[in-house]
């Protein structure tokens, strides 16, 4: 595996170069100023509103996924010997 290291480095640098060129070569269409509510810089409230209104269905699906993951992980990790 040690022999893999230079190749991995080359590939990683190549990838970084490709992505970096993409990132710095693109004119990002962004707002000119960061939103400035300087009294209350937190946006937790906004996030909470979004999650429980617009994204409530994905949120619930995610909870089911997490539950399934929990059950699956426990089942796999527990193994058979503790039957």
């Amino acid at each position: 595996m040690q022999s893999n290291r230079p190749a991995a480095l080359v590939v990683a640098v190549l990838f970084l170069a490709v992505v970096g060129l993409g990132v710095f070569g693109t004119a990002w269409n962004t707002v000119s100023e960061l939103p400035g509510n300087l009294e209350d810089p937190s946006n937790i409230e906004g996030l909470g509103m979004l999650i429980f209104t617009q994204y409530v269905v994905p949120f619930e699906v995610l909870s089911i996924v997490l539950l399934a993951t929990l059950i699956g992980a426990i089942y796999m990790a527990k193994g058979e010997e503790s039957e």
Binding site: M1, N4, F15, V18
Partner: peptide
């Protein structure tokens, strides 16, 4: 990991 390496290299070259 070899597969991952080759795949990433392939994606980069493709781009």
């Amino acid at each position: 990991q070899t597969y991952a390496t080759v795949m990433i290299a392939g994606v980069s070259l493709l781009i």
